[in-house]
Amino acid sequence: MLTAYPPNRLSAQTVDQLAVRLSAMTAVTGLEQAMADSLLLLVPGSARDRAGNVTLTLGAAGPKRLVACPLDEVGYVVGNVTDDGYLTVRRVGVRIAYPLFDQQLEGQPVTVFGAGGAAVPGVVAVKSTHLTRGRPAASDPVFTADNAYVDVGARSRDDVRALGIAVLAPVALTKRPHRYGDRLLAAPAAGRRAACAALVAAARVKPRVKGTVVVAFTVQSLYATNAGLSTVQALRGPFDETKQLTLATRYTDTAVETVSLKDAEELERELLKWMEGR
């Protein structure tokens, strides 16, 4: 439900296609299971562990190596519902580089994930320029999550409940991955998604690995103590080597975080070499 694409068109996807597909998904840290469901479909043979990580074991014997990609993102959950049907939010995840991260919500389309993961569209309220009545705009303090009123078109608390929305429902900017330039991809958390896409692509090739390689798409990297990765290490380790995937990004942690899909393709090639011990 978290992606516009039907889940059964999984064959023969390039890193570019996978990166766009994963960038269209939402996985607020700690609430990643809808995206994990998609990864279970994308990576044949993978399984979910008790923390919600998606892992795949390739090969046997030693050396035993781990390659991990975090699938979560800083986002929001519904914190309260007002009598007149607006949603207020709290942020989940703190490790962000962009000082105006919350302000990116103001006056923008968002998606609320209601019961069963149903995507409910909404917007974050913003003052009209017309009604500022000459007040200097510069006097407003920076927008924070505390200023966010999400309007899903509901007129009452009951309307909101009927939409399947309750406290803790994930909320994120509506994801519309945007390609530009020479194979550049802009989207929230595009760097993480493109890195995970490279790992999905490499895992789907079913490489002849050297020893054992555990492929892990981890949860909760942006909260508390990186509980997802720690769980994989505790349950599946010890590992002789751990490789955590990253890709260079521009406009990091903004809604147009930009990654080069050429870099993602190169990462897939490097991963295959690493897995095969070449």
Partner: peptide, 14 residues
Amino acid sequence: PGVFVPRDTGFSRH
């Protein structure tokens, strides 16, 4: 297609 570049200074509201 392109992107509106985020500011890198002057982190204010509007």
